[in-house]
Design a protein around this nucleic acid. Structure first.
Lengths: 239, 239
DNA sequence: CGAACTGTTGAGAGGCTTCAAGCCTAGTGG
DNA sequence: CCACTAGGCTTGAAGCCTCTCAACAGTTCG
């Protein structure tokens, strides 16, 4: 039996090639030279399901870009209850806010599935911002998208009922994560987390989901969510 | 009596000098040359109290910067009810989102007092973004501030009671608009609008305000709001 | 000075939360 | 591979918070 450990240096570049970085909107704006410099300085990080990526109040050394998996971004309210702000997925940026303002993180992030993130150090990102307007513009557009969604969400949560918000949130999840050929939602989410997105308690969310099931708008086999009548859900959501 | 109208070309630069543009954080980052180019292409616009600055769904031809007065930025919910997202004041930027994404406005804006805005056309702003990283960075920081506030607000509105949110909103208004030596809040706001900020109906907001008055936390002479016990308000707001 | 708007309070209804109890199921360890 | 257990899911009952509707007082402004 050979006990000599083989060197594994060649693994790193091979991994990079498979990441498909260049296909993400944000990286498409970089020149080949810039991209190589990013790759030279960035790290691929794996997070297993449920592991914490960062916590509210921590300091970030760079920017995360989601390559694979799903990240739950949330805030903890005064009573310890989570408010989920978004589920980030492939191509989404997280942790950019505190990078730009040099403040501490105002949200927490957790891997919702086994997740692969790309961590780009702060100085590389800031360099790119200064050099490459297209890259900066793309980032700003991403920020604008989040601002728009926040504004819509504030209005909804302030004015709509739990039933309306639940219907709307299901449709948003459908848009973001898609469905398979049986109309099964392609993210597995606990009732508690769905409640934490909608901004209610688990019991209320479950009651609304049961209503939807009884009205033949959804099927709920196990933890799956199957859409049966999207038009009616849209009508309920009032969108 | 001399009926010849005197030329008034000199008025324009004199007005500009008095605007104090260079003292605003956002313009401090511009070189003298850039600032002159901005001034050459921008327009000062006056809006009288209650007049509409832009509406949800309209297209913007540039960016507004508030020079004087207060602007109410809001969304109309499905039932026609306003949700106030912010009150913008001196130095704040409005309408930048649709400028960056080329989308239609997703909010409406109204002058809450007689207001002076500085309107900078889109191409000038985009040029500055490309040329001057410090200016872009300052704008991005402004966006980050709004994102952070949005996230906090979503969490609060989803988890706190009307009483807690009302206390918090009063304290936020105090921070943003200040108080005079009698602790009188330096913005006059209707109960309805306060309710539209807090995310409740007018009657509920009034009941909470009356509670605060009965508990000697506030005085409410006419439309003024006088703070009597900020520490207790903070305790109620849970911040 | 009157009309229109804003502010205030009461009563009642209903949506949502809380507390409680039991079932289900997914993942772990033997 | 199965049994076990912790965590997720579900429903019921009770009560509270908030909204709705209504009536009227106060204030502002043409």
């Amino acid at each position: 039996m050979n006990t000599i450990v083989q060197p594994r240096r060649r693994v790193q570049p091979i991994v990079n090639i498979d990441l498909g970085l260049r296909e993400l909107p944000i990286f498409k704006k970089l020149s080949e030279e810039e991209m190589l410099n990013v790759e030279l300085n960035s790290v691929v990080k794996n997070f297993s399901k449920r592991s914490v990526i960062y916590r509210e109040g921590s300091r970030h050394s760079g920017l995360y870009c989601v390559l694979k998996g799903i990240v739950k971004v949330y805030k903890i309210g005064g009573n310890g209850k989570q408010q989920i702000l978004k589920f980030a997925q492939k191509g989404d940026l997280i942790g950019y806010r505190s990078l730009l303002t040099n403040e501490l993180a105002c949200t927490s992030a957790k891997a919702y599935e086994d997740t692969v993130l790309y961590h780009i150090p702060q100085h590389i990102i800031m360099e790119l911002f200064q050099q490459n307007w297209n890259f900066t513009h793309e980032t700003m557009k991403f920020m604008c998208k989040e601002l728009k969604e926040s504004n819509m969400f504030i209005t909804d949560i302030a004015q709509k009922s739990v039933r309306e918000r639940a219907a709307e949130m299901l449709l948003i999840l459908k848009d973001e994560f898609g469905v398979d050929k049986y109309n099964t939602l392609q993210i597995t989410i606990t009732r508690e987390d769905l409640a934490n997105m909608v901004g209610t308690v688990t019991e209320s969310l479950i009651r609304v989901m049961s209503e939807f099931r009884n009205e033949n708008l959804l099927e709920l086999p196990g933890r799956k969510i199957v859409f049966r009548d999207i038009a009616k859900l849209k009508a309920i959501a009032n969108i």
